[in-house]
Nucleic acid binder design. Structure first.
Length: 577
RNA sequence: CGGGACGUAGCUCAGCUUGGUAGAGCGCUAGCUUUGGGAGCUAGAUGUCGCAGGUUCAAAUCCUGUCGUCCCGACCA
């Protein structure tokens, strides 16, 4: 393609509404444009990259034996109401009706945020026998979510392209096999995309299910926190991560429970300071949450943050921190002086339970609030003084703690989630009637798995991971073009002839080439060329004029090489490192 | 939805405090010069100052409302 006939609106300056590198570069290089918040147009170059990512996904999904289908974006609301997660999903779905007149549907439509319900109902209606299993379907298409806060360009958009795969098996073992196959397929896909990524144990969230892993691309601009150890023996999302706590500053012997005055002390840190000098690890932190309309106390060691996702896993569906006023009404003290000691259903009828983190089990000599403003208790024994109704892992894993399965220190890094695999079980198939008869003639719900890749998000993650100070750097498999041919001596007849000739030759040979034939100064072409990130820049300029040589700059290394025209094809085929 | 910032030319932004003829750089058009890392000079075109009210002789500027955008948080692939 000739640049002078293409649509490549590059920007010299950083667009005002782009914060992170990849978003800025995609806009500046003319790959995408924003239509509205979280809604983007793919321009020709961006679309070429998108199509290449999709092609890799299709090839690998097909290789795994999955079959592609195309499902409707418009879906009946009733289908969702019949499914297992309407309450959670309705908050992110767009409802659709004619904009200009009164609705003429008998039912409402929604724009699909994902397609588990659709595929499950398809299978329910068309697969009846265990002989028709296992089957794995996939789709690559636009999905819609009314994100409460779109951000970072394609990373969190209202309209985005996803690959979703869905497996149906007769039994659990089969589902595990399907899951493992997809897990491998995902590695092949992301490897081919040239991404460095980490596979982490993950929470299943509203999807539900029993096994789940995320494919995370380490990157400062990411929205997920990933916990891992260098050796690779453990990696989990921050929501899921488990850790061994550090030992306490001074694990006290059983002592006498004693109340002492702490005027003005409101925080764990206040109590650490003189004159009190109580290490945070020797304190019990008391948090109060509304869980499904009941108040619960959550106790953790002073140096351990609460992981709200783990609280949700205890079986609560709605969770919200109690306000100071609500707490005062229930406990008789304000935040800063709260504690679990002496709290029982009889003494505090508004408190439905005291849930304590496992790290506190059997601890003695702790310090905690006295449920009386300005007073704390020391010598607290968890066993003796606090009526814990339930023990659980409530802790947010922290960098510097030890992994659960080794003595290696955990690290935490930001990452972009590009893929997620779930073993769903029978949650959807039961609810939507995707049953088959097994070999004994007994009806059983299919055991399902689902497997997502954020395609548009992956595109930006690749841009983010590959970028350098001059622009984007695309891997050869995904670059919008393989070669950028730059004519630099725009007034030199011989150079023009050589460039035109090379352009035809490369095209005839099936090389994807973008020919920068603009009447621009060399500097402009260099800057634009580096910005786009095409792997090879073949320059016809000074060295051609002087010695009939092409100059090939390899974008990744930044190195320029003088190449004889006759050896160009060979050079491009096997470039120096 | 809570907190913060912003909305002026295609893009990046100044002007607003202290009301008085709408600005710069880049880009665009034409010409001359220049020609290997976003050229120089000359001449041009380009604006409902987000929108709606209000205050005022007079509003980009002050006030109120509203819409939009971005950032932090809650939500999530």
């Amino acid at each position: 393609m000739r640049w002078t006939e293409a649509f490549i609106p590059t920007l010299r300056e950083v667009p005002q509404d782009a914060e992170i590198r990849s978003h800025q570069l995609l806009l500046r290089a003319g790959f995408i444009r924003k239509l509205s918040s979280g809604i983007y147009t793919f321009l020709p170059l961006g679309l070429r990259v998108l199509r290449k990512i999709e092609r890799i996904i299709r090839e690998e999904m097909d290789r795994s034996g999955a079959m592609e289908v195309l499902m409707p974006a418009l879906q009946p609301k009733e289908l969702w109401e019949a499914g297992p997660r309407w309450d959670a999903a309705k908050n992110v779905m767009f409802a659709v009706n004619p904009a200009g007149s009164t609705p003429h549907h008998h039912f409402e439509l929604v724009l699909g945020p994902t397609h588990e319900e659709v595929i499950t109902s398809l299978v329910a209606g068309n697969i009846n026998s265990y002989r028709q299993l296992p089957r794995t379907f996939y789709q690559i298409q636009t999905k819609f979510r009314d994100e409460i806060r779109p951000r970072f360009g394609l990373l969190r958009a209202k309209e985005f392209i996803m690959k979703d795969g869905y497996s149906f098996d007769l039994d659990d073992a089969g589902a595990d096999e399907s899951y493992d196959k997809m897990h491998q397929t995902y590695q092949r896909i992301f490897d081919r995309c040239g991404l460095k990524y980490r596979i982490v144990e993950a929470d299943t969230g509203v999807m539900g299910g029993s096994r789940s892993q995320e494919f995370q691309v380490p990157c400062e601009a990411g929205e997920s926190d990933v916990v891992y150890i260098e050796s690779g023996g453990y990696a989990a999302s921050i929501e899921k991560a488990v850790s061994k706590p550090k030992s306490r500053a001074k694990s006290g012997p059983p002592g006498k429970l004693e109340k002492f005055a702490t005027p003005g002390v409101k925080t764990i840190e206040d109590l650490e300071k003189t004159p009190y000098g109580v290490a945070s690890s020797d304190q019990v932190k008391t948090l109060v949450y509304w869980c499904d309309s009941k108040l619960y106390l959550f106790l953790l060691r002073g140096d351990h943050p609460l992981n709200e996702v783990k609280v949700g896993q205890l079986g609560f569906s709605e969770l919200r921190a109690a306000s100071d006023a609500e707490i005062a009404a229930a406990l008789g003290a304000h935040v800063g002086s709260l504690g679990g000691a002496g709290v029982t259903p009889r003494s505090h009828p508004k408190i439905a339970g005291v849930i304590a983190d496992e790290a506190l089990k059997d601890q003695e000599g702790m310090t905690t609030g006295a449920n009386e403003d300005g007073f704390h208790l020391r010598g607290v024994s968890l066993k003796r003084d606090i009526a814990v109704t339930r023990w659980a892992d409530l802790r947010l894993a922290q960098a510097g703690e030890k992994a659960p399965n080794s003595d290696e220190e955990l690290k935490v890094e930001r990452a972009i989630e590009v893929g997620h695999v779930f073993k769903l079980g029978t949650k959807y198939s039961q609810k939507l009637g995707a049953n088959v008869l097994d070999e004994n003639g007994k009806s059983r719900p299919c055991v399902m798995g689902c497997y997502g890749i954020g395609v548009t998000r992956t595109l930006q993650a690749i841009a983010e991971q590959g970028a350098d100070k001059d622009g984007m750097v695309w891997p050869e498999a995904l670059a919008p073009f393989a070669v950028l041919l730059q004519l630099l001596e725009t007034k030199d007849e011989e150079a023009i002839r050589a460039a035109e000739g090379l352009y035809s030759e490369l095209r005839d040979a099936g090389v994807e080439v973008l020919y920068d034939d603009r009447d621009e100064r060399a500097g402009v072409k260099f800057k634009d060329g580096d910005l786009l990130g095409i792997p090879f820049q073949v320059r016809i300029g000074k060295s051609f004029k002087e010695g009939k040589l092409f100059e090939v700059k390899i974008r990744k290394t930044g190195k320029a090489h003088q190449v004889k025209p006759s050896e160009l094809r060979k050079f491009l085929h096997s470039p120096p490192p």
